[in-house]
Design a protein around this nucleic acid. Structure first.
Lengths: 216, 216
DNA sequence: CGGGTTGTTTTCATACAATGGAACCATGCT
DNA sequence: AGCATGGTTCCATTGTATGAAAACAACCCG
């Protein structure tokens, strides 16, 4: 059985992804990114608009529409993202003994901790879940800003609690960085060598989650 | 100008909405809800699947896929939901003098405060933004669980801080309740009469946001 | 067992609808 | 004015989305 799939829909979804990713995109940009003829892109985008999945501003730019946002909120407040990441969180906690976290960025440049797996050391980091911090010079903040060294992870002592150190790596979806995986523990236990070690475990798991989410 | 729109795409998006809303749906259920022939629905759903917007379990049920979740996370961590709600938050703060909040539910039954407008009273509630609490018997929790009296809002003294009272009303999108609007202030200022008053302001604004999001 | 019911899948002829080139506006820049 | 660049409309052509029908697969129950 040959891959039976409707081209029109594929293209429309591609456009939807572009709009969601950019947050705001002009017709020609959409057309360019999807390699569609402007006339075709326009017709499809108009369909997205009339169904409420996109909306068009006075300025002619396309943005995510109500339907999409509703669906997004639902998807996120459901299992979804956390479900995809939970196995990796657990594995990290198991393999390292330290607590691991999943974070997302927030509109106002904050960092939000949305899920966790507790480490096994008797001295371990607990309970950042549900809290939000400014990005500052934190490891997670650096990842969200996309400023990463070639190793694919970064480490820093906490800007919140001085004796705490965090190592962080990005989770990519098709639309770019959507979350951050992080291992957190007491600074005294995390010397240079140990950080390298945890870093590679972390990037491996982050890549696993990214793959689940359709990233690279 | 005649409704120039591509039917195929409309149908596919309709299916996407159904899958996102249900979280899990069989082929025939999708077909029934969209009034499509099973064969057509199947072909379209397969397209959603092959593009990563839906995924199909061993059991044959369709669920939200990686792409959709990635987009959802992005939409939420962008402006979007907050942008839609901000005017209402500001209006509530202005009209009541109390601080107003926008919250969403989280996978583990928590309540997450994602945006705020500060009240004008010198004694006012500040800084729940970015925090997460259990649903417990809180007003917001009750709204998320969908247990609402006919008035369309509910009030309760905080389970976190005893002297604090919260009034909450649901924000509906096409997919159901996606967020909660809440006004929070010191209990001593919020007697029965005042609660009624704020409640109707709140439901009015909640409905306004709901309309923006394609709700009823 | 066998015959009903319900859900899923494939096939295929046909009508219809998606396509994109070309031409047409509307800008803005030199 | 002259030239870009972005947006829009039109329309003949072709390709493709469509859905009835039929085959297939699980069931449940007398």
């Amino acid at each position: 059985m040959a891959e039976q799939s409707t081209r029109t829909v594929e293209r429309a979804l591609e456009l939807l992804a572009v709009v969601a990713e950019e947050g705001e995109a002009s017709l020609t940009e959409c057309a360019r990114r999807t390699e569609l003829a402007p006339s075709t892109a326009l017709r499809l985008l108009r369909t997205l608009e009339s169904t409420g999945f996109a909306l068009r501003g006075e300025d002619g730019a396309f943005r995510p529409g109500h339907r999409l946002i509703g669906i997004g909120a639902k998807a996120l407040s459901h299992d979804s993202l956390v479900t995809f990441a939970q196995p990796s969180l657990a594995e990290l906690a198991r393999a390292t003994g330290e607590s691991s976290y999943l974070c997302v960025g927030t509109p106002d440049q904050g960092v939000l901790y949305i899920a966790q797996a507790e480490g096994s050391h008797t001295i371990r980091h607990v309970s950042w879940v549900g809290h939000r911090f400014p990005q500052d010079g934190s490891a997670v903040g650096r990842v969200l800003r996309g400023t990463l060294p070639p190793e694919g992870f970064t480490a820093a002592t906490s800007t919140v609690e001085p004796e705490v150190m965090a190592i962080a790596a990005p989770v990519h979806a098709a639309t770019g960085i959507v979350a951050v995986l992080s291992v957190v523990g007491p600074a005294y236990r995390l010397d240079q060598a140990r950080v390298e070690e945890l870093g590679s475990l972390l990037t491996a798991e982050a890549e696993r989650v990214s793959t689940l989410l359709g990233g690279p």
